[in-house]
Design a protein around this nucleic acid. Structure first.
Lengths: 107, 107
DNA sequence: ACCATTGTACGACGATCATCGTACATCTGC
DNA sequence: GCAGATGTACGATGATCGTCGTACAATGGT
């Protein structure tokens, strides 16, 4: 198909803090690929999607980033053709104090 | 079919402590029914399978208890036709210190 | 304007999940 | 021995999941 309209790339939808649900967070972090992504963000602060050492293809990565974003675990902002991922540490800490640290310690 | 052998009911297989995996625990607790079961065990100590107030049928309950047991979150011992469920608190604390408490605080 | 890079949408596939009803085994009280 | 209680195995269903390949859009460098 050909392009018909300019995509507004800075509007990546994220759930608000009070929309972040425990079940979705636990589900998001129960997958080894997503847990590795989150552990890398803890260590490095931020990464673009292509900057992770994960054993799956690009399209599967996109799938995993979508789940992490929709669960409210990560924040994504566009930077050229890339998307910069960061952990929503403050939001997660406010919602579930200490939980993320405990999960990462257990990993 | 008719009964052909006496079932050995005390041998309910549970994973050993070092076989308990973080991903399986997080997955087990990402479901609202299972989270409610675990929260009830925290509060009451132990319950038989039928002693939980959950919005699903008996066979679905059996399915959920199976997932919790196989993830190493609960221990089940037979008592007549019933099974008494308890949290494997010590095992989970040894494996993932503080994690269960944080999850339950967040629930 | 072209090219490379980045990431996504879409559709497909096989596996897993959560649900349920049914039939049955086991245990215990009577 | 029978009845009731408890819980499971089995099979079924529809939904979700994690995987991938392909085609494409958007961006920025040249």
């Amino acid at each position: 198909m050909t392009a018909t309209a300019t995509q507004v790339t800075e509007d990546i939808a994220h759930p608000k803090r009070d929309q972040i649900e425990l079940g979705a967070v636990l589900h998001a972090l129960s997958d080894p690929v997503r847990l590795r992504i989150v552990a890398t963000l803890i260590a490095d602060g931020e990464h673009t999607c292509g900057g992770f050492d994960v054993p799956v293809t690009k399209s599967t990565c996109t799938h995993h980033f979508k789940i992490l974003r929709e669960a409210g675990v990560i924040h994504q902002r566009p930077q050229g053709t890339a998307r910069v991922n960061t952990l929503r540490r403050d939001d997660l800490e406010a919602r579930f104090p200490g939980l993320l640290d405990k999960i990462l310690q257990s990993a």
